[in-house]
């Protein structure tokens, strides 16, 4: 029986899981939408992983969690490592591409840039208060254009003359996009313009003058959008590497961290069926009135989410 390590990355939009062996080789992985319910997402994720996992040869010896719901899931699964997504991504990516110098990551709600030199993070930045130019925005606009989000990049590539779209702010971009639609620009041009707007927003507001040196690896859900990848290549002049397992990099990284921690807390796939109580309340701190979900275990608050912006977050007592 060999030891295996499970890493779970629970993001705002999607939940990712990876199981690795002691040589950091990926044994299996899974990816699904969080749909605002990380607990249920992780339950499904664990069931999916269980079917792919070779339980005769391996046993999961330790769990690590990352992503915005890392505390909750870390508590539920008794994780040995609960780590922020920046570190997890850096560790995961350098294990696949040891010579990487720049990592772009655009997820559902946040985006970050990580600068590495000699395999060590030397600088990073994360988007600040707003989620402009992240996956959530692309999904919304894809729905507006009636293009399945998976095909969005492909549609954008068919454009020969991308429509300029204001990149600074999601709200401005949206009104700009609507106006361009109404004056008769083609969907392809608008899709391509939007991809470019997202890249410009990212370079101006997240990368902000940081030195982008190749090799550049692009990760996160948005990296699956070929239109954005092309726009990045045009704007930076570098080849953009998108890994087949790029969306799993955070989960992979935290699995490695769990292995490196040396702590062993054998894990059972049934552990996800712990009893948690979830209560919703409306945030009320702005006109959005987001439904904030609070999670209680034995009557104590362990996590909260559902907020569209950082305003609605409920302070989580540290474990």
């Amino acid at each position: 029986m060999k030891n295996a390590f499970l890493g779970i990355d629970i993001g705002s939009i999607s939940t990712k899981g990876t199981i690795i062996d002691e040589n950091d080789r990926i044994l299996c992985g899974d990816y699904l939408y969080t749909k605002g319910d990380p607990l249920e997402a992780v339950r499904t994720l664990l069931k999916n992983l269980e079917t792919k996992f070779d339980a005769l040869q391996y046993r999961v010896a330790a769990v690590g969690t990352t992503g915005s719901a890392r505390k909750l899931i870390g508590a539920a699964l008794d994780a040995v490592v609960v780590k922020n997504e920046i570190t997890a991504h850096a560790v995961g990516t350098t294990s696949i591409h040891p010579d990487v110098r720049t990592i772009f990551e655009i997820g559902g709600q946040d985006s970050k840039i990580i600068i590495l030199r000699g395999g060590v993070v030397t600088d990073y930045a994360m988007n600040t208060l707003c989620a402009a130019g992240t996956g959530a925005f692309i999904s919304n606009q894809a729905a507006r254009l009636d293009i399945p989000v998976e095909d969005f990049g492909g549609v954008a590539l068919r454009s020969t003359d991308p429509t300029p779209i204001a990149a600074r702010c999601t709200v401005f971009a949206e009104s700009d996009l609507v106006h361009k639609l109404q004056i008769g620009c083609s969907k392809e041009d608008i899709a391509a313009g939007l991809c470019r707007a997202i890249v410009l927003n990212y370079l101006n507001n997240v990368a902000k003058g940081k030195k982008i040196e190749p090799p550049v690896v692009f990760q996160g859900g948005v990296s699956k959008n070929i239109g954005v990848v092309k726009a990045f290549e045009n704007e930076t002049g570098h080849e953009i590497i998108v890994d087949e397992n790029g969306h799993l990099a955070g989960a992979y990284g935290v699995a490695i961290l769990a292995r490196r921690s040396g702590a062993l807390r054998p894990f059972d796939f049934r552990v996800a069926d712990v009893d948690f109580r979830i209560a919703g309340k409306s945030c009320g701190r702005c006109a959005n009135n987001c439904e904030v979900i609070c999670v209680f275990r034995d009557g104590t608050l362990v996590d909260s989410w559902g907020n569209r912006c950082e305003r609605g977050s409920v302070a989580v007592p540290s474990r």
């Binding site: 915005s68 780590k83 922020n84 997504e85 920046i86 570190t87 600088d123 990073y124 994360m126």
Partner: peptide, 9 residues
């Protein structure tokens, strides 16, 4: 998240 990442870095 940002502070922890900074510390790790």
């Amino acid at each position: 998240t940002r502070l922890e990442a900074f510390y790790d870095m």
